[in-house]
Simulated scan of single mutants.
Amino acid sequence: MSNFFFPSSKISFFFKLCNRLHNFLYFCHRNHKIRYLEMAKRDDVTIYDLAARAGVSASTVSRALKGHPAISEQTRQKILTLAVSMGYQPNVFAVNIRKKKTYTAGILIPRITSEFMAKAVTEIQRILNAGGYNLIISQSDESYETEVKNALTLFNSRVDGLLVSLSNETTDCYHFQPFLQKAIPVVMFDRVLPGTNAVTVTVDNFQGGFLATEHLIKQGRKKIVFLSGPLQCDVYRRRYEGFVEVMKKHGLAVSAGSVVECQLSHEDGQKIIRDFLKKKSLPEGIVCCNDLSAAGCITELNKNNVKIPSEIAVVGFNNDTVAGIVNPALTTIHIPVDRIARQAALILLQLMEGNKIHSPRHISFPCHLVIRNSA
């Protein structure tokens, strides 16, 4: 029956065709493999290859590539054209090893998603790039454990310097000791650890907490709540100390219920207002340690038809974009993020270049109150 459907002549032709196809595919595969191996064996083009092709010395090629004035324009153009056609790439890694520099800085921050940090990183990168350095950005995501791991990764990447803003969980700086032991400069900004040997650049957070609270007190508010991030973090602790100082100054009590610690998200702001409304214990004023949580407070107050600022006044921190968008517009403490970032980057740049800094090792910028409609 098989011969009826497939005559022997056709079967023979079919097998011959398969055999030829097999040989053809084997040839193609073998030829491709040989070409691939030849490419793999081919060394990178060096200045010696360029010199041999151009008929000049290797030192002439090196000078031409660097634009040395001793090399004529004609020779330089000839070598540059040859370098492009031969696929020459300078070995930056080898050059950096000889110089013992990578021309790379690292930055370790809590989260780049916050407007404050996004602005800071943008300004820092602009300054470092202008100074001839690339920037590796790493995030701790508010985790001490992640911060430790990422610090080690940056150290092993042989960065020439490090900028750090600590996580909420960080209470020691032991993981930055390898940098200091190798004389790799470390500059901390925004969130720092008191007593550290590193250069620090911050804002006067005590002043910010004082100004925000005093503004509410001057409006006749007595029952004031302080919405804070984790108080083990220096930024929030100093703002809290400013809050306590001005409350005591005016003879106002600070109870356990006057301070609420959270992660300062928009949802946290909404939740604290819901809790106060359920307990029917809405304060007369609230100081939030960032604008995002303050916006959450305003959202929830509006949802429950609580009048702002007649029934409750709200003050934020940072002066982010959201402060001018919410309704009513948010009264807030302006943090000069551009100045903080610029100063931190310039100091690191000086230190990476081997220069001594003449400014104080611990720099603190003043902040100021921006009055809008929420308070």
Rank of each mutant, 00 (worst) to 15 (best):
I79A: 06
H368V: 00
S9M: 02
I347L: 14
P360S: 10
S8E: 14
K33E: 15
T60R: 01
M352N: 07
S9H: 11
L227R: 01
V45G: 09
S258T: 11
E267T: 13
H29W: 08
N134T: 14
Q177P: 00
S281G: 01
T102S: 15
P309R: 06
I97S: 11
F276L: 03
N305C: 09
T202D: 09
G296E: 09
P230F: 03
K271I: 13
S8F: 06
I11P: 00
D268G: 02
H29V: 10
R111I: 04
F5R: 13
T60H: 05
G316S: 07
A344S: 14
A295V: 07
S85I: 02
K41D: 15
H250C: 03
R111P: 00
S165G: 12
Q207S: 08
I71C: 07
L348P: 11
L301P: 02
F15L: 13
I298R: 01
N31A: 14
L65S: 10
R238I: 00
E169W: 03
V45D: 11
V203K: 00
Q181D: 15
H175C: 02
Q350K: 15
G209E: 12
T332V: 02
A313P: 02
L193K: 08
A375H: 06
N3L: 14
K271W: 01
L152P: 00
A341K: 02
V315F: 09
K303T: 13
I124S: 05
I137G: 04
A52M: 08
P178T: 05
I312M: 04
T102A: 09
P7H: 05
R30C: 13
L50S: 11
A253E: 15
N205Q: 10
K100H: 11
L154K: 05
Y236P: 00
F276S: 07
I286H: 03
K149S: 14
S59K: 02
F176M: 06
G209M: 06
G229H: 04
V203M: 13
I137V: 14
R361Y: 14
L50C: 09
D190M: 02
N319K: 01
R239A: 09
D49A: 07
E147I: 03
Y133P: 00
H22I: 12
E245A: 15
S59Q: 13
G257L: 01
M1V: 14
I124F: 04
G55N: 06
K99A: 13
L346Q: 15
I325K: 08
I363A: 09
K119H: 11
R238V: 00
G324R: 07
M352S: 07
D275C: 01
D190F: 05
G242V: 05
D275Y: 02
R342I: 00
K119I: 14
D44E: 13
V326E: 08
P328M: 03
